[in-house]
Design a protein around this nucleic acid. Structure first.
Lengths: 212, 212
DNA sequence: TCGCAAAGTTAGAAGCTCTAACGCAAGCTT
DNA sequence: AAGCTTGCGTTAGAGCTTCTAACTTTGCGA
């Protein structure tokens, strides 16, 4: 990589770091290309040499967050490769929760309100699938539940040549939805002041997925 | 109500209707006081006689949406007052889903990304509690599950003098989180192109809550 | 009929995204 | 090494936004 390219990459990284800080502070609407540029000692439009638009910057943040999430889950799975599937899955679920709590607005950037009509780039979709399949692959090592699985679950898997049992995939979707349900309500403050132990509820939810 | 007040109320309603249309079309960020005013044949700042700020308008939309949701659930519960609890709860869950699908952006206005530090007015919180308690009250008529319930669930109920069994309340929270998990992922397009039957998954989720 | 309050207007400040036009500096090519 | 090209920064400015200030008109109530 040339000197120019390296410097360019540094500027891009710094801009994205500022964007993430603004995201954490004021939500997606609080991210301003202008103010990021000024905070970097640049004049307003200078950053448009690095990002074609504000939307493109946001899209990149989303994509990187997904990559980060997928890597977190995959590395947790790898760490527990030798362990019981139940142990590995529990660790992954807890890692997911930690990841969410570490950056609530980053989580909501992925799973909160999208702009209607927003189409994620292929890269982002791929990372999302990696995250989901990380769960499915470990779930596959579990004794399959007896209940019959809707055939539509297998279709998608065979279409893209993923070697995962439909029942495991279904279980991954169900588990994901239960984890997300609790995390989302917790992060958006819907449980505020209700005083119960959300972490305990989360652990119970994870167990409920694993024990049928 | 005087002629003046009635007209004022009409203008407010019309403005909110336009706001909801803009919400559906472009998300929360697409709601513009300016453009609403122009669309109503008014000049920009005129609407500020009716709403103190854009945020106040948004807050009012949120509050009304919550009221509407609570009323929907309560009336569904009332319609099934004589029915088996399981039937009533299933109907309420389906009504919840229908309500969400009828206005995805309205749903996400309540349960999507909030602006950090946003504090809902008491009115809104009350409506949210009504919605949750509507489920809890019917769940109470169900045979209580054997598992012990964390005492922290009872605390909140006794604090505000709600006569609901802690176990029913806990079940309502769990059920709510499972429904929301699936609805949220569906509405934000995370299941896009995966091709399985989300409605079926939702029905299964409802059953899983009711049958332990 | 008079007066006051409500509701509209325009002007304008401050912010945003993003384009256009221009200058300088660095790097690649000849 | 000289020159050309490309990249990066600038300012100016269009057009949008929220929202305040000041002024005018309108209409209700006494």
């Amino acid at each position: 990589m040339s000197r120019r390219e390296r410097y360019r990459e540094e500027v891009r990284q710094e801009a994205k770091a500022h964007a993430m800080a603004q995201l954490a502070e004021n939500g997606p609407g609080g991210i301003s290309v202008n103010s990021i540029a000024h905070r970097m000692g640049l004049s307003g439009p200078a950053l448009y040499r690095y990002f074609p638009s504000r939307d493109a910057l946001l899209t990149e943040l989303i994509s990187e967050a997904y990559q980060d999430l997928a890597e977190t889950l995959e590395s947790t799975a790898a760490e527990h490769r030798a362990a019981e599937p139940v142990v590995a899955l529990t660790a992954m679920a807890m890692a997911f929760r930690e990841w969410a709590l570490a950056g609530p607005q980053r989580y909501l950037l992925l799973f909160g309100t999208p702009v209607p009509g927003y189409a994620a780039p292929a890269e982002t979709i791929a990372a999302a699938q990696r995250a989901l399949l990380a769960f499915a692959q470990v779930l596959e090592r579990l004794p399959a539940p007896a209940c019959p699985v809707d055939e539509s679950f297998g279709q998608w898997l065979t279409d893209r040549g993923v070697g995962v049992a439909p029942s495991a995939f279904r279980q991954a979707v169900v588990g994901w939805s239960r984890m997300h349900g609790l995390l989302s309500l917790e992060l958006t403050g819907q449980f505020a002041l209700m005083g119960f132990d959300v972490a305990q509820l989360y652990r119970d939810a994870v167990k409920s997925v694993l024990n049928g």
